[in-house]
Amino acid sequence: MSIDFSKEVDYVARLARLKLKPEEKEIMAGQLSDILDTARKVQEIDTTGVEPTSHVIDLPTVLRDDETGSSLTLSRVLQNAPRRQQDYFKVPSITAKDNGINAGEEA
């Protein structure tokens, strides 16, 4: 197949906040093409009457009781924080770039 996947690579890279060099993009485009070819092959299989599967283990999920247990100590919680201030994780502002307003996609 000789479809050009460079647009798709750009799009996925932007979603994943990845900065790719031109040569990396080229490699990725080729790999993406191979992956999609394989997917296409799988799609050729006749799945009429087969229930879609989202998990390889065919068991229902396990539930636990609503009981509180111990959490990590503050020093352990913040142990891997690249930056901290007082007892908080410190992160670059999302708001500065967004013209003063929090434009995040909060849940």
Partner: peptide
């Protein structure tokens, strides 16, 4: 059903001026 996110605390009084945010999980 889904999971709640953490809470962002914006440093300084003005959201506009703050160069960073603080996170409480």
């Amino acid at each position: 059903l889904e999971e709640e996110a953490g809470k962002l605390v914006h440093a300084g009084n003005s959201i506009m001026g703050s160069a960073y945010s603080l996170v409480d999980y």
